[in-house]
Design a protein around this nucleic acid. Structure first.
Lengths: 347, 347
DNA sequence: CTGTTAGCGCTTTCAT
DNA sequence: ATGAAAGCGCTAACAG
């Protein structure tokens, strides 16, 4: 592509018989520039159609006002709310957002990190791929002291700041609620235990079973990718058991809803025959019949908190005093687990 | 933030007793560099932990390998699929993606465009805000000959390339289908007619009515923001009419589903009392009870086509010969409009 | 308050 | 196949 030459601060300087530095300062509203001079500079810039060259500026000042965002997948409602939250704050505070998806692989994640580094992002927001086992690929960021903040899928043994919800507690609450509703044999559908979100929910599930002296049966636990297929496969398996489970706790709404549909197809009633709970409180949870009991996951807020913290770090040049920020989740009880009317009266 | 000094090509050059230009060429796999020299350069770069400085490179070469993406809102499933498609291709072809949302306002859209320009993006992918009336804010891109491609919400009288589906035909097909199912009085819930997507669907709706000699009644058409509230409001209004409509065609799934829920709350049966159709074929359409008749909108494909075309333009330095690319949509008939079993047999 | 000078790290002629 | 030198547009340090 051929481009006409840019209007530069030199052009403005020449037209106004000023020095480039004065123009540069005027453009950036530097305090030491006379109001009148600034006005003239701005007017002339407008007049000539001047456009700030971000790259030249970045190169010189070694600041990019760009935040990198790396996440496993873009195509979920949850992620779109997170990104929306991030973008709004970034924009408001004058940062650009560069986004890249790892597609759940370590290799691609590594490539994303490298690109972000070459772009010299000021900071990085990061949610781990499914298969990532260590943080070796982040070394260059660490060495340079470029802040990295994890959200949602975080790395536990790291001193990077993490923004999460209490997945253990949430998993516990869901399971506990189902037990209180009368479930005695609850299936768990979860993701890889390497990832905090799935592992913690799973541990919460086990803790609740234990607290109620319910046996833990590995046969009714499925750990793997959390998609529709996982839900369908689990239902197909469980309905063939001699002792059919009476509850399913899935670690996301998508697979929970898949379970509901498959169960209904097979003539099971929800929640009378099998109670089902999900996780995330996405739009489908309010639409499926019966409505899905789930955990409200504040995606937009998580995005906002993550980037606000990051930008604060960048601008105050100091790390926050905590290592983990835990956002509030909320158990949302809906019809898919309400075996006893009493449950509606619970706080 | 304090940063240690970058390892530069000068460091590599010095260590290898080569000139910076040779190193620069070696790094970029320039043909005129001996294999062995290149190998040594790469090895030393790795050794010293060299990282390419994108900005310096951009500044000099006047290319950024960055694509800007401006869209109204990020927080919908549809948009997340579009973005996912865009990001995958961008990444594969070596481009970075900078994303910004206009939040449906012209002012913010203008600001986004300006930022993208300052970033010197190589090209722009663009879906219009709700209220945008003209393309004045794109003038700087036009002047510079930086390619801009519209998708989904496009501007009609422009010579920028547009990627769309045939919204007129889709709107016609939905309405026509409902009429064939026996609907005589169909509500339309649409968005602002400034936007092609809503206007075309609306026109398709009117054409279908006309073709079947059905009267057009402005009282049962609502034009405005396409959210849940719009659906609820319309239902509340229509069920008070002396002659209650027997069908609703909403221009997106979210408001269609809101209609279904509200109707059910009021004791109406779907589709026996009121048939309902939506648009987009998002996840909720397959989950709502009864399942929603809708139009499949190939979001990911649209994103892929948009960016592939853009990158091709950038690399071939030539504009495509067409002005509009129309992607295939598909009417998805589900239970929410199936008054006659016959419909299931239609091709 | 404004100007001078010197690069940021890279690529790009033009030489050799 | 490699090198020397210039400069992309801006900002920062230092002067005045």
């Amino acid at each position: 592509m051929i481009r006409k030459k840019d209007v530069t601060i030199y052009d403005i300087a020449k037209a106004l018989k000023l020095s480039p530095s004065t123009v540069s300062r005027g453009l950036r509203d530097h305090k030491s520039i006379r109001k009148e001079t600034r006005r003239r500079i701005l007017a002339k810039a407008m007049d000539l159609g001047y456009q700030h060259n971000t790259f030249a500026s970045n190169l010189r000042s070694n600041r990019t006002y760009t935040i990198g965002l790396i996440l496993p997948r873009l195509d979920s409602y949850f992620m779109s709310t997170v990104i929306s939250g991030i973008e709004k704050v970034a924009n408001k505070r004058g940062y650009n957002l560069v986004i890249s998806q790892s597609e759940e692989t370590y290799e691609k994640e590594k490539a994303c990190i490298s690109t972000m580094f070459n772009l010299r992002v000021d900071g990085l927001l990061f949610s781990l791929a499914y298969e990532t086992k260590n943080l070796d690929h982040l070394k260059m960021f660490q060495k340079r002291g470029i802040p990295v903040i994890f959200f949602d899928r975080v790395f536990d043994q790291s001193d990077h700041l993490s923004i999460v919800i209490d997945n253990f507690k949430a998993g516990f609450e869901v399971t506990n609620h189902m037990i209180e509703q009368g479930c005695k044999r609850i299936v768990h559908l979860g993701g890889d235990l390497k990832r905090n979100v799935y592992r913690d929910r799973y541990n919460g599930y086990r803790k609740a079973l234990k607290d109620h002296n319910l046996p833990f049966d590995p046969n009714i636990v499925s750990i793997g990718p959390m998609n529709e297929e996982a839900g369908i496969r689990m239902v197909d398996k469980m309905i063939r058991m001699e002792q059919i489970p009476d509850g399913i706790f899935a670690s996301n709404d998508v697979s929970a809803v898949a379970c509901i549909c498959r169960l209904k197809q097979n003539g099971f009633r929800i929640p009378e025959d099998v109670a089902v709970a999900g996780f995330n409180n996405g739009p489908i949870s309010k639409v499926v019949d019966p409505n899905l009991t789930t955990v409200n996951y504040p995606g937009e807020e998580m995005g906002e908190v993550a980037i606000t913290t990051l930008v604060d770090m960048l601008e105050d040049s100091l790390a926050p005093s905590v290592n983990t920020i835990v956002l509030k989740h909320q158990l949302i009880v809906r019809a898919s687990t309400q075996l006893h009317a009493a449950s509606q009266c619970r706080p």
